[in-house]
Design a protein around this nucleic acid. Structure first.
Length: 332
DNA sequence: GCCACCGGTGGC
DNA sequence: GCCACCGGTGGC
């Protein structure tokens, strides 16, 4: 019945117009209050880099505890790397995480509707002590992965950190708190370490997308693999790795879960398809003759047609646009 | 042309 | 709702 939370925080570099208040404020960005399309700021890894704005992070929209006063030491926190383990957290066997120093190069998406914002990236690895529940920074991604691999059988305690912090005990203040200055994500426990020479990459997506993150494995050859199917195929084509002992059990594409609710766009409700009969009539018909999918009824950032698309999935057209016939359904 | 990032599907 | 997979595409 114990829970394991590994966390990694994503410090992010805030955009100038996201910084409210004094420059001392630890966070220039609160997603909660952000207008939908001012999604300009984002995370850039800070840990272990010379980034000079380590304080700017993605805020967590909820689950904030405000326990202690160490909140504004984030500039320092953000320069460490850590992992947390939370035996008390809900959701058996989960691990929280926040951000990854290794992947901390500034990333930008390049999608039309996202105005080249910087994307979040992992800035710190943390694990919660199973005894005192304080979050402890883990110095490296590798150490984090090592801890995560056996977190269920080998819970993390402050003493576990003696390997890199000889004096640490449960009496010491937490390294990090969920103060809203970072994006927090709940990692999965017991994920195997990647095979030697391989790297497991976690890429956090931008807010409001359809998924929170993606996992990639990078083979020693540099080849990026993005699913078990691809790994299997790759290993078949490169038996030398198998000969070295690489096996499928060393791979997992499980992604963490964002602590912040609504970070990921909810998937529209999909009505069960009754046999082969879907009545496309009397749905919505705001799509014009050109098949223009820019909604007139929709709000910015709320592409209603997507839910429509779901309703019509059996009649999906090859292009992203609905045919005029499909759209001609508002029989009101 | 490559590839990082995102959308969307089907299955459960 | 979550997960796994993979196609599409803008930017480089």
């Amino acid at each position: 019945m114990e829970r394991n939370h590994l966390d990694f925080a994503s410090p992010e570099k805030a955009d100038h117009n996201d910084i409210h208040g004094s420059s001392v404020t630890s966070c220039g960005y609160s997603m909660k209050h952000e207008p939908k399309d001012s999604r300009v700021s984002a995370g850039s890894g800070v840990i272990g880099t010379s980034n000079q704005n380590p304080r700017d992070v993605i805020s967590s929209a909820e689950g904030e505890e405000h326990n202690t006063e160490d909140e504004d030491n984030n500039s320092e926190d953000a320069q460490k790397q850590l992992v947390l383990y939370d035996p008390a957290a809900v959701g058996a066997g989960e691990i929280e995480l926040v951000a990854d120093p290794v992947d901390s190069q500034p990333r930008r998406n390049s999608f039309p509707n996202y105005a080249s914002r910087i994307l979040p990236s992992v800035g710190a690895f943390t694990v919660q002590c199973a005894n005192c529940f304080k979050w402890r920074l883990i110095p490296t991604k590798e150490k984090y992965e090592e801890i995560r691999e056996h977190i269920l059988e080998q819970p993390f305690y402050c003493e576990t950190a003696h390997e890199w912090r000889a004096e640490l005990s449960c009496n010491d203040p937490p390294d990090l708190t969920q103060d809203g200055s970072r994006l927090w994500a709940i990692d999965k426990p017991n994920i195997a370490q990647p095979p030697p020479g391989w790297e497991r990459l976690l890429r956090i997506r931008g807010e409001g997308g359809t998924r929170f993150a993606d996992v990639y494995y990078v083979a020693p050859s540099g080849k990026r693999l993005r699913s078990m199917v691809e790994v299997e195929k790759y290993l078949q084509e490169h038996p030398e790795y198998v000969a070295q002992g690489v096996s499928m059990s060393q791979f997992s594409f499980q992604i963490p879960r964002p602590l912040q609710d609504n970070y990921v766009k909810k998937r529209p409700y999909r009505p069960a398809l009754a046999h082969d009969e879907i009545e496309p009539v009397n749905r919505i018909a705001w799509i014009d003759q050109d098949g223009d999918t820019d909604l007139r009824l929709g709000m910015p950032g709320v592409p209603l047609f997507e839910s429509l698309n779901q309703s019509f999935k059996k009649k999906r057209t090859p292009s992203k646009r609905m045919s005029n016939a499909d759209a001609a359904c508002k029989s009101s």
